[in-house]
Design a protein around this nucleic acid. Structure first.
Lengths: 267, 267
DNA sequence: AACAAGGTTTCAAATAATGGAACCGTTTTC
DNA sequence: GAAAACGGTTCCATTATTTGAAACCTTGTT
């Protein structure tokens, strides 16, 4: 767990992360043991966060959990993000055309953060997928995004991977990964060859801004039971076409007719 | 917009809310105008929030938007909440049994916060519903929850309603609302008689803890085109049954076999 | 009855936040 | 083309908040 560096606010957010990391209701003493904060400090941070609705405190059990204000904020974050809401319709379409699950992700530090998932066949279980994080060195989406990261950021990201060997196909060294990323940069698409989970394969591509900045990634996921890698590669044109559509929409959205920005009036 | 009272952390979170309230990318100067913070202070708050990933700053456009860290945190918040994940399967079932949309909500201050939505027929568009807030004085869920609030909290909540007349059926005074709440307390279920939106009706019930504390609310929504209010009231037993199932699961979940709490080990 | 554990409060010292003003790079105006 | 306005960033002495050791409750335990 990274130490906070941004004064009181950083510490408060760090505590928030620690509550999130606990995976369930935590007691004061749990946080006290695991964290670097003295009793009184932690106590006040928790009080502040609770009074702000970022945490909720169960007085009966004496436990803290993440608060509802986060859900409200995240809803706004998602619906106001430039990528996810704009891309949603296109994901839907791509999923219908291919009959496969389609994922949209963004880089969150060195990790992959899934921001949308569409799957025609199965029941959509969106919140459980949206917000989930995964490793970037061994997923199609992760590699696709890493491949287009500026050198400095790539170096940093590569240094933060665990390189855990999930399967026999997992790339477990920065060197192997760098070589793979070079291929991806040329090809424009990345593959997950069962590197994260046996039987799960995917084809992915990054989504870039006009300026070449990496905004996110788009992938089509399948299983070895349904498709081969070659099969998947046939979907590349569809994938890249969808990517182009999304990039074009994003640009239109970000520079709406070059007019002055509308300000919403509080009601 | 409420002023912050919790020191620096409160101010930072207030700024976060202001960015959320803007409804899209905001520039520094927009926030400066609308908010009570002096230039330098606002600048540092934004820097801190950005460096913490709670905001993201688009250097090209000079705008701020809500950051991805929020989405990550909210995912955790939702999946660790005591109500939503536990209730989800039951909502699913209730929706299948009735063929109608089923909502799960919690009170967030004086507002209704939707935390889950299930709809068999239409495509599930979950993130767009989850996290959304609505008024409590003119929705079935809102009234169901208000009706079981302790006096002190109810007084506060009633004072914070807008009492805007959305439709002819909207209750527009605290007095009318109090009378309605008394009925609801007796009946155990609340109805939305097109009070918020013409053509939209619903039947709702609160979800309570063992101790009588209000945890959330559950509703079945329909349209006047499909069902009458009498029709809806036929569904009360199913609704109350589902409520009982959820309450029972919650209790089991919150006191897992009375054993010591498991601590997750960071990997 | 004494003890321990888990929380809460106090208070002087240490630290971080504050915000007016100056600064700097662009863009607009005259 | 000079000057002023704008939008954002940095400085720094002052001020207010945060800090955390220790004392103190409250509740459950030996």
């Amino acid at each position: 767990m990274a130490e906070a560096r941004d004064g009181t606010v950083g510490k408060a957010l760090d505590v928030l992360d620690r509550v999130a990391a606990a995976g369930g209701p935590v007691r004061f003493s749990d946080l006290l043991e695991d964290g670097p904060y003295p009793k009184a400090t932690l106590y006040r941070l928790l009080q502040t966060l609770t009074s702000q609705g970022m945490l909720s405190h169960d007085a009966e059990l004496g436990t803290y959990t993440l608060g509802v204000r986060l859900v409200r904020l995240a809803h706004k974050a998602w619906s106001q993000a430039s990528l996810a809401p704009v891309a949603h319709e296109w994901l839907d379409r791509l999923s219908r055309e291919t009959g496969e699950a389609v994922h949209l992700a963004q880089l969150d530090g060195a990790q992959v953060l899934y921001v949308d998932k569409v799957n025609t066949a199965l029941r959509v279980d969106m919140f459980s997928a949206t917000g989930r994080v995964g490793p970037s060195y061994c997923t199609g989406l992760g590699k696709a995004m890493l491949a287009f990261l500026p050198d400095a950021e790539l170096d940093q990201a590569l240094g933060q991977q665990s390189y855990h060997r999930f399967t026999d196909a997992t790339l477990t060294t920065p060197e192997a990964l760098r070589a793979e990323l070079a291929h991806i940069r040329e090809a424009g698409v990345a593959y997950d060859r069962e590197e994260h989970e046996p039987g799960i394969i995917c084809i992915a591509t990054p989504i870039l801004s006009r300026g070449g900045r990496i905004l996110g990634g788009l992938s089509i996921t399948s299983t070895t039971a349904r498709r081969s890698l070659d099969d998947l590669s046939q979907l590349a044109p569809l994938l890249l076409d969808t990517r182009a559509k999304i990039e074009s929409d994003i640009h239109a959205w970000r520079f709406p007719e070059d007019g002055p920005r509308l300000r919403t009036v509080p009601t």
